[in-house]
Amino acid sequence: MRAIWKGAIAFGLVNVPVKVYSATEDHDISLHQVHNADGGRIRYQRRCEVCGEVVDYSDIEKAFDEDGRTVVLSKDELKSIPAENSHEIEVVQFVPSEQLEPMMFEKSYYLEPDSKSPKAYVLLRRALEDTDRVAIVQFALREKTRLGALRIKDDVLVLQSLLWPDEVREANFPSLEADIRISAQERDMSAALVESMAADFEPDSFTDEYQVQLRQLIDAKLEQGESLDTEETFGVEAGEGGKGEVIDLMEALKRSLDRKRGGGEAASAGGSSDDEADTDEADTGDGEAEGAKPARKASGTKASGTKASGTRAAAAKTGTDDAKPAKSSAKSTAATKSTAAKSTASKPAASQTAGSKSTGTKSADSKSTGTKTAAKPAAKTTRARKPA
């Protein structure tokens, strides 16, 4: 980096010599103007409107027009302004950082110690750290007196030039004066969307997509020449990519939440509880009897829907004392029902329905008690009969 200015911070009677460096730089791809007919470079000439001659930059002065009169100011006259010759960054206040309006920030500069001993520099930095405040300063740079904020970044003093208050426009929009009502549901939905997008700010994770795509366009044009196909280059038609107008605010909020939650809308449409999923797996068995389906639906219901307490007690006696989660019991029961349904094809319809009801009761009982059912032995007996 090259220093653009040298001066000193006036911290009371303490003088802190510093060098000033631009803290930011522009990486945008530079484009120039050409004649579209032959590609000739367009040049701008400083031509005098009185004599018509092209004027060298060294022969140009600055002027101000007022009431039909023109006041020409020479370079030497401009340099005679006292503020222009000042190389002092004067600390005038120390304020809390939250009182600074971000809209007033203009440009940032790094300050480097410009003396053999940087003790005064470190002292000012420590003072800002210990008090947790920002120094408000005044200085002159490039023919303008400026207001600035002196803060710390990675042990380096940073000077941020500020706009003067009269340089910040007021936002006066009549459309915001209307009585706009926001429902509680809309506020809750928008708060949920904010929460789903909450994260720590990491500037390195963002990219200037326009500059990347501009470089892509330049490379493609160099390779393909006038036969360039922008739709093939970018995968979309030229001019596409804009977002449509939002008409239904609630619908837009819902769709945004679904997208951030990883397709929650699709999950809510196709998703089901574990018990229902297990029942669906049992329904896919081959050669099922129609009479067994009502019993399987009953087994997918919660235990609170079963009122036969006497039957529950009898079924509990047949199980073991080793408790298992209700989900595992439901899976075991569903698998047993599927096997039992296959074997009952040769039985009378009445006994088949009764067996299905019995199985449904055991499933409900197993959910309410959290114990194993006696279905496993029955399943083994069924498998033994299947060859016959």
Rank of each mutant, 00 (worst) to 15 (best):
K327Q: 14
L217C: 03
K243Q: 05
D321S: 15
A295N: 05
S272C: 10
G235W: 03
L217Y: 04
G270K: 11
A308I: 10
L222S: 04
D229A: 02
M250V: 06
E290M: 09
G241W: 02
V212L: 07
I218V: 14
I247D: 05
R255C: 03
K297F: 14
L257P: 03
K243N: 00
D274Q: 12
P325H: 10
K221I: 06
K297N: 13
D258I: 05
T318F: 10
L257K: 07
E251L: 07
A308R: 14
A315H: 13
A313D: 13
E276R: 12
Q211H: 00
Q224N: 04
T233W: 02
E281L: 15
A298H: 06
E290R: 12
A238H: 04
G241M: 01
G271E: 06
A295V: 09
D280F: 06
D219N: 10
T318H: 07
G262W: 08
E276I: 15
G262A: 08
S256Y: 00
D219E: 13
I218M: 05
E281K: 13
K260I: 00
A316I: 06
P294N: 11
E281G: 03
F206Y: 15
Y210R: 03
G262I: 10
K324A: 15
L214W: 03
G263R: 06
E237M: 05
P203Q: 01
T284V: 08
I218T: 05
E240H: 06
G244Q: 05
D280V: 09
A238I: 07
D322T: 15
A298C: 10
A292D: 05
K221R: 13
F206P: 02
E281V: 15
